[in-house]
Design a protein around this nucleic acid. Structure first.
Length: 307
DNA sequence: AAACAGGCCTAAA
DNA sequence: TTTAGGCCTGTT
């Protein structure tokens, strides 16, 4: 019962007591680019993995690792049921990126964009938990990725649920793992507690978001139901500490939409450098967010090659 | 050591 | 409506 276009086969097995799901997949899926493009903060590369690439992380209160070898993706420490219910969509294995790419090319045929798309082939936009996305991108402001990860780990360790990792040592889970804390537990902990976890001036923003999340003033299902991007953005901006950029990221990575086009310092640079003054990212259309990821990755890789 | 990091808030024109 | 300054912390 294969329901996703690019998933060719799914089998289960077990390796040293760790159950896995192995997916044969057509098309390109680049785990490294996907986890390294700044959309998520809880995945780490597994050192000395026998796979071409393997990452271990926590999502939806579960610890798992994902490995890729050619056109095979293996998810360790999961079940077939969770694969179909959670991971198929989380990893965007149910998405037809060839279709997305050709839609984007029909909207923009600039050479730089074609190059960026080629360079970023295999990047996937994950479908993360909405609360985790909101909270993570509040933390991301005026901050760098190592410290964002550090803060999120500290919050998880102190306020999340402990997750059993036994048997996952070979998959990079040497220490205990913890789920991303719920809005309720963050709100209960209070602003000073968060401040002491080095969140800095963002502590009160996180509390404001958690409080609105708890009270229902910030309702994820309602947000997902808003058809128009600007309305959804405005709605999220009710929270102190959420501005246009943070809202765009949260919507793109946690609320099931592809049209947000987060503009940060990198994207400002890209737009200035390669596009006409009157060019609007809106012209990328409904998959603008995917275009943003390609361009972002492209610009950052150019920087790395120059070093 | 001073500046910067995938911003946002606030005060002041 | 737009603009400057400040902000927690860690790293270079």
């Amino acid at each position: 019962m294969v329901t996703a276009a690019n998933v060719k086969s799914v089998i289960t097995g077990s390796e040293e007591n760790i159950p896995f799901v192995k997916i044969k997949y057509s098309g390109s899926y680049d785990l490294s680019k996907t986890f390294d493009c700044g959309q998520c903060f809880r995945w780490e590369r597994v050192p000395d993995s026998p796979h071409e690439a393997e990452f271990v992380g926590v999502a939806f209160e579960k610890l798992l690792s994902v490995a890729s070898d050619g056109n095979t993706i293996t998810i360790y420490n999961t079940t077939l049921e969770d694969f179909w219910h959670i991971w198929l969509h989380y990893f965007a294995l149910d998405e037809d990126y060839d279709a997305i790419d050709s839609e984007l090319l029909s909207k923009c045929n600039e050479k730089v964009f074609r190059d960026a798309m080629m360079c970023g082939k295999g990047i996937r936009i994950l479908h993360q938990d909405p609360w985790e996305a909101v909270c993570s991108f509040i933390i991301s402001q005026n901050n760098n990725i190592p410290r964002i990860k550090k803060i999120i780990n500290a919050m998880s360790k102190n306020l999340g649920k402990r997750i059993d990792c036994s048997g996952m040592e070979k998959h990079g889970a040497s220490e205990d793992a913890y789920s991303f804390p719920t809005a309720g537990s963050i709100f209960a902990a209070g602003e000073k507690y968060l401040y002491d976890l080095k969140t800095g001036f963002r502590a009160r923003y996180i509390i404001d978001a958690a409080s609105k999340w708890e009270s229902g003033e910030l309702d994820p299902e309602y947000i997902k139901s808003i058809p128009e991007l600007n309305s959804a953005t405005e709605y999220l901006c009710k929270v102190k500490g959420i501005g246009k950029k943070v809202a765009s990221c949260a919507l793109l990575f946690g609320f099931e939409r592809y049209d947000p086009f987060p503009i940060d310092v990198w994207m400002k640079r890209v737009l200035q450098k390669y596009f006409d003054k009157d060019f609007s990212p809106l012209s990328f259309g409904k998959y603008a967010g995917v275009a943003q990821q390609y361009l972002f990755d492209y610009e950052r890789n150019l920087g790395n090659e120059a070093k």
